[in-house]
Design a protein around this nucleic acid. Structure first.
Length: 656
RNA sequence: GCCCGAGUAGCUCAGGGGUAGAGCGCCUCCUUGGUAAGGAGGAGGUCACGAGUUCAAAUCUCGUCUUGGGCUCCA
């Protein structure tokens, strides 16, 4: 028996080897072992059962604890195995695909892709889940095995698991690792680590069923995917389920209908939005905010058509790279020329730039447009306002000299922060996508150009004191970009706009300006959209505010509620006066009781209600109720107008 | 596009081989009530569409359309 030196946290000690990781941890701290699911030995993830052998070096052992992200990943991955074991148990003919943990998808925690002998339906989920619980309850061990690749392939081909064989041949080295849950027929080709036994998986749930292509490729066989999630404790699972319910309540499709904001109707086409008066009122405010800021920042407004000659899309490269997302060409009867609906606005703004020669003094040129574009999205991907076929981009294209990039980008960042702050998005995330190891990607332009551009973007971010994430290899082939993401009121992340540098289109369209030196130079184009799509951002806002828009955005800002019919006339005069001042006002003259009228207004989430009875009429006052606070007291109409005007002007998020 | 679920009144949904149901909303009447639902009556539906099975289909079968969940965070 020999000695082994281990280090766990600050504790260093020597124990006799060989010894399992579990025993090693236990020798340091009993409680620590209880909380551990797996461990990292010198940084490498291993099971608790992993055997440590004598060595001269000091082994650093870091437990992977239940409550950490790594721990959760182990739980979820192990739960995926448990799911597969249950499915195999119930349907022995099943062929296995892959079953990873999902750590960044708020919807699910893991899945397993299978080829099942019959088509599963939602009714199967509780059955499978029940079997998972039975297996988990038996407290079976997850056993790891090191095995030669050939033996493992043999094992899986005997079990008639063609997909597993394919994976092993692709991924495994000379030796491979397999995991087996004891007393089940489940074996997986898997790196691990896993929980030591099934009773460590305490809180899990199956969630959904879907189709999924083998390796995500639509040319491959379609498999059945079972989604589930798992957490370290039941409390966490319950909290997650509750959050999910909350998200459902905020669903913009549901609220859009309840609040009469917009509709999508078969007769008009899938993925095409009809903005109802109330939705349109909100959109007008959204656009006003943008227009104000655009004007302040020296943008020019332009308008461009919805279709253009097919030739244009050839020059721009869309025909070549983007044809699948474009509506098919169309033409005037009897005419040769073909036209296509625009999927992007850039070529039009380029046309405006090219309409007259530019000197270096003219730059930057900043063109902005609420440009409506059309994209032929696959029917199955359409989703409410979030994924549509016709939408409006708060688009702008800046034509700049290389020395202007940093400053212009910095202003875009200010712009973004200002706008999102107004909506109450306190957490805005920026991601800088730069070129990476060009494996199968051909980056356009010289290395020097790229270096300069990437540095300009990074400097713009730094200059504004914005922390950002740098992502290698995510740049477009034509230039680096900054993506903008925001976190909403219930912690969900939405990818919105982007600031993109582009030297491809200037090249394709041969854009020029005359420099100080009298020579022709090529401008750089910056594509810049903050919302990405007005429709989508509107959807995000609906969910963010849960339909309870702040005063300045609310489609109906004020509703006037007379207590009795005697007051109707006064109520109407108040409503009329407020309308004249530019507020969006309704009045409710039905013969309902005041409490019923209030309830109605509350359900419509109208920010301010004016409750008018004999007293108010006689004194010429209004009694104000705020939808969240309730009664906020009586004031003169003049005072009320002043208060409401201030709410509008400051675009206040709270109404009191 | 592909896989699975769903389509019944304006909305939310129940029902189910033999007069089509509820609540909310809408209209009318009664009620005039001070901060989240007063009462009564009425109108409103080819049960998504098309075919088939049947004496009989909203119901069962098939197809179409629409809609919802999803379609490699890589053993």
């Amino acid at each position: 028996m020999s000695e082994l030196n281990i280090k766990v946290g600050e504790n260093q000690k020597s124990i006799s080897a060989p010894v399992s990781v579990a025993e090693a941890l236990k020798s340091v701290d009993r409680d620590l072992l209880k909380k551990s699911l797996a461990a990292k030995v010198n940084g490498e993830e291993v099971d608790l059962s992993f055997e440590l052998h004598a060595t001269d070096e000091v082994l650093s052992i870091e437990p992977i604890l239940t409550e950490t992200r790594d721990g959760l990943e182990v739980i979820r991955h192990s739960a995926a195995h448990l799911l597969a074991a249950a499915v195999l148990d119930l349907f022995p003919e099943t062929k296995l695909g892959v079953g990873p943990a999902l750590m960044d998808d708020p919807r699910y925690g893991y899945y397993y892709d299978i080829i099942a002998p019959h088509q599963l339906t939602e009714a199967d989920l509780p059955i499978i889940e029940k079997r998972m619980r039975q297996i988990a309850g038996k407290n079976l061990a997850y056993r790891r095995e090191e095995i030669s690749r050939d033996d493992l392939v043999k094992l899986f081909s005997e079990r008639d698991e063609p997909l597993k064989c394919e994976l092993i041949n692709e991924k495994a080295g000379e030796t491979a690792t397999a995991y087996h849950i004891e007393n089940t027929s489940f074996v997986d080709f898997c790196l691990g680590p896993h929980v030591p036994n099934t009773n460590k998986i305490k809180a899990f749930k199956l969630l959904a069923l879907s189709g999924a292509y083998w390796k995500g490729d639509a040319n491959n066989q379609q498999m059945q995917r079972i989604y589930g999630t798992a957490f370290a404790t039941q409390e966490e699972l319950d909290a997650w389920l509750k959050q999910r319910e909350e998200a459902e309540k905020r669903d913009h499709r549901r609220l859009g209908k309840e609040l009469d904001l917009f509709s999508i109707q078969d007769d008009y086409g899938q993925g095409l939005i009809l903005w109802h008066p109330k939705g349109a009122a909100i959109r007008m405010e959204m656009e006003s905010l943008l227009k104000e800021e655009l004007q302040k920042r020296g943008y020019s407004f332009v308008f461009t058509p919805h279709i253009a000659k097919r030739e244009l899309w050839k020059v721009s490269g869309h025909e070549e790279n983007y044809a699948d997302s474009m509506f098919a060409p169309t033409h005037v009867v009897g005419d040769e020329d073909e036209f296509r609906l625009k999927p992007m606005n850039c070529p039009f703004h380029i046309g405006i730039y090219k309409a007259s020669p530019k000197s270096y003094r003219d730059l930057p040129q900043r063109y902005s447009e609420m440009g409506t574009v059309y994209r032929a999205e696959l029917s199955g991907t359409l989703h409410g306002l979030m994924r549509v076929r016709g939408f409006t981009v708060d688009d702008a294209h800046l034509f700049v000299r290389p020395d202007q990039v940093r400053e212009e980008v910095a202003d875009c960042l200010d712009f973004a922060l200002k706008v999102f702050e107004t909506y109450g998005f306190e957490k805005v995330k920026f991601e800088l996508s730069v070129r990476g190891e060009a494996e199968n990607k051909i980056y356009l332009g010289a290395d020097e150009e790229w270096d300069n551009a990437e540095t300009s973007l990074a400097n713009a971010l730094k200059e504004r004191g914005i922390s950002y994430e740098r992502i290698e290899g995510e740049a477009a082939f034509y230039g680096p970009k900054i993506d903008i993401k925001i976190e909403d009121a219930i912690g969900r992340i939405w990818q919105l706009g982007t600031i993109q540098l582009d030297w491809n289109l200037p090249e394709r369209f041969e854009l020029e300006y005359t420099g100080e030196d009298g020579q022709k130079h090529r401008p750089i184009m910056i594509h810049r959209a903050l919302f990405g799509s007005i429709e989508r951002f509107f959807g995000v806002l609906v969910e963010h505010f849960a339909g309870a828009f702040p005063f300045w955005l609310a489609p109906v800002q004020i509703t006037v509620l007379p207590i009795t019919d005697r007051i109707n006339e006064y109520a109407e005069s108040v409503a009329k006066e407020l309308k004249r001042e530019g507020f969006r006002v309704e009045s409710n003259l039905k013969s309902d009781k005041i409490s019923a009228k209030i309830r109605d207004a509350q359900l419509q989430k109208i920010p301010l209600m004016l409750i008018l009875g004999d007293k108010e009429f006689e004194e010429g006052n209004v009694a104000v109720r705020e939808r969240k606070t309730g009664d906020i007291g009586t004031m003169t109409l003049v005072e009320f107008k002043e208060m409401a005007r201030r709410l509008n002007e400051t675009r206040a998020l709270a109404n009191v």
